[in-house]
Design a protein around this nucleic acid. Structure first.
Length: 356
DNA sequence: TAGGCCATCTGGTCCT
DNA sequence: AGGACCAGATGGCCTA
């Protein structure tokens, strides 16, 4: 058991702590370590963790050490006080202490991997919201807020069946975001944040600074920046020379700037939008656990008014690609869209739809 | 230096 | 019984 633990890197931090490997002498860890070494023989569980043990710790004990400690200190004799109920305290033998430590070590390792999984899922989310940078990541809370706003914005687009104006689109995206994140989104969408700050954000502006926005200050780029059209210097647009590619422009075919309306611009969607409601994520060949799980996201807009049929055009939004006229094979999974930078046919349809 | 963000540990609770 | 999930505590790192 111990051999397996020591050979498992994920368990090392705890193993180090409980084995006295940690060299941070005044840390909490070392306190626990010292206690362990000082009072192992007659130590109660509270010596190990500072309070009572959990039920699971009781549960892990064998019959071999079911010695029961003397009930309190003899105060409740002769019926002066009712006898305490519940399981009697068991003496902490050396073996029990060791088992307790091992349970804690394993639980810590599980918790670490759980949090790592959560963080990798959050990283995947960062890649599909409008602002993505490997170098300067959005914080967790801002990622969630932006994702919520983005979903809402896309839902509104589908519900209304028409493209919103840039300002309201960005306003939706930035609702509830901090000023720095608002600036970042503005950077991605090529807007000066002063142009679209909500009234509330303007009132709160003092918290985050002047509200001014500098393209040069935030190296955020859209998820599809590696596309030739998003590469710095790929054309003369000053924003592009700084490496920015507008998600809005990608989505709407470049309405934000006249030059983007030129036919040769084939800016890809960023982040990916899948019209038939199925959104598949395949990841790059990492060994992340997410890969093995084969995420498949489904978004159903059928409940939204007008989402089934949007009037003058023939697009029907629903979970069934066959019914919608957009076949599922026409929709590249996220992996393909991000790695190969090819336009899926559905993008043309989408752009045509928004250009009507 | 204060505040924000994050990773980790920990104990409690719930579920299978 | 053991694992998943959660929230609180703590300390480190970074930035304005």
């Amino acid at each position: 058991m111990l051999t397996r633990l020591f050979s498992d890197p994920s368990l090392l931090p705890d193993v180090q702590k409980y084995s006295g490997w940690a060299d941070d002498s005044d840390s909490e860890d070392s306190k626990i370590k010292d206690e362990d070494h000082d009072t192992q023989d007659d130590m109660d569980s509270s010596d190990l963790r500072g309070d009572s043990r959990t039920h699971s710790e009781h549960a892990g004990e064998d019959d071999e050490d079911d010695e029961v400690e003397e009930e309190d200190d003899g105060e409740d004799t002769e019926g002066e006080r009712p006898k305490k109920r519940g399981p009697k305290k068991r003496k902490m033998t050396q073996a029990r202490i060791e088992r307790s430590k091992m349970r804690r070590i394993k639980a810590n390792a599980r918790e670490r991997t759980r949090m790592h999984d959560l963080n990798s899922a959050l990283d995947n989310l960062r890649k599909v919201v409008p602002c993505y940078s490997k170098t300067q990541k959005l914080s967790k809370i801002e990622t969630l807020r932006l994702a919520k706003n983005y979903i809402w914005a896309l839902s509104e687009i589908l519900r209304n069946g028409k493209r919103p104006d840039l300002v309201s689109y960005v306003q939706t995206l930035c609702k509830g975001l901090s000023q720095p994140t608002t600036n970042l989104v503005a950077g991605c969408l090529q807007l000066n944040s002063r142009n679209f700050l909500t009234e509330q954000q303007c009132q709160e502006g003092g918290r985050y600074g002047s509200g001014s926005f500098s393209m040069h200050s935030y190296p955020y780029q859209c998820a599809r920046l590696s596309s030739p059209h998003c590469q710095p210097g790929s054309n003369s647009h000053p924003l592009r020379t700084h490496g920015y590619c507008s998600a809005y422009d990608s989505l709407y075919g470049g309405s934000g700037s006249p030059e983007y309306n030129s036919p040769e611009y084939e800016g890809p969607l960023s982040p990916p939008l899948c019209i038939n409601g199925n959104f598949s994520l395949k990841h790059q060949g990492s060994a992340s656990p997410d890969n093995e799980k084969g995420y498949h996201y489904s978004m159903h807009y059928s409940g939204l008014p007008g989402s089934r049929s949007t009037g003058s055009h023939n697009l029907v939004f629903g979970s069934s690609g066959a019914r919608s006229g957009i076949h599922s094979e026409n929709v590249l999974p996220y992996h393909d869209m991000h790695l190969h930078h090819e336009r899926a046919p559905v993008y043309d349809e989408l752009n045509a739809f928004f250009h009507n």
